[in-house]
Computed example of a mutant assay.
Amino acid sequence: MVSSVDPRFGVALREFREQRGLSLRSLGQRAHRSKSHLHELEAGLKAPTVDTACHLDRVLDVGGALARLVDAPIDHAAEAGELRARVAASDVSADVLDRIEQGVDDLASAYPTMTPADLLPLVRRHLSYVGRLLEGRVTLAQRRRLLVAGGWLAVLRATVHIDLRQRTAAVAHLRAARDLAEHAEHGEIQAWCLETRAWDVLTQGDYQGALDLSRQAQRVAPRGSSARIQATAQEARAWARIGDVGATRRALDRVERLTANLPAPERAEHHYRYDPAKAAAYAATTLAWAGDPGAEQVARAVLAELDPYGDGGARPRRSASARLDLGLALVAAGQPDEAVALGAQAVASGRVVPSNWWRAAELLAKVEQSGVPEAVTLRDVCTEFAPGRRPSADSASG
Results as ranks from 00 to 15, higher is better:
A47V: 11
E82Q: 12
P116I: 02
A110S: 14
I100S: 08
L120G: 02
L97R: 13
K46H: 09
D57K: 04
H55W: 08
R84A: 15
L45I: 02
L122C: 09
A65L: 13
H37K: 00
A110E: 14
D57Y: 08
D51W: 05
Y111C: 09
R68G: 05
A53Q: 09
S90K: 13
D118A: 14
L83C: 11
E40N: 12
A65Q: 14
R58Q: 06
A65T: 14
A65I: 01
L69G: 00
P112R: 07
A85W: 10
L122Q: 15
V87F: 07
D51M: 04
A43H: 13
A67L: 06
I74A: 08
A108R: 14
D61L: 02
A53V: 00
D75K: 10
R58H: 03
D51F: 07
D71W: 12
D57M: 11
P112A: 02
V104E: 05
G103L: 10
A77H: 02
E82V: 10
G44C: 13
S34M: 03
E82T: 08
D106Q: 02
V59E: 01
R125W: 07
T52Q: 08
A88D: 15
L56A: 07
I100E: 06
L41G: 00
Q102T: 15
D98N: 13
Q102S: 14
E42V: 09
A72M: 11
D57L: 12
A88E: 03
A94P: 03
T113D: 05
V50S: 06
D57G: 11
L119H: 05
A78E: 11
A80L: 09
L119Y: 01
V104M: 06
A80S: 11
L41D: 00
R124V: 14
A117N: 05
A67S: 10
A88M: 03
V104L: 04
H76S: 06
P112C: 10
H39D: 07
L56R: 00
Y111W: 14
L66C: 09
H37Y: 12
L41C: 00
E101Y: 01
P112Q: 03
M114W: 12
D105G: 08
L66M: 03
A67F: 01
R125M: 04
R99Q: 14
A72K: 05
D106W: 08
V92N: 11
G44N: 01
H37P: 08
G63S: 07
S90L: 08
L56D: 02
H37E: 06
T115A: 09
P121L: 10
D61Y: 00
S36D: 05
P73V: 06
S93N: 07
T52V: 15
E101V: 09
D106K: 04
A94I: 02
L41I: 00
D118I: 00
A89K: 06
P116Y: 07
V87Q: 06
V96H: 11
L56I: 00
L120W: 13
L107T: 08
C54T: 09
R125C: 04
E82A: 15
V96M: 15
H76K: 11
I100R: 08
M114I: 07
A89N: 12
Y111A: 15
M114S: 13
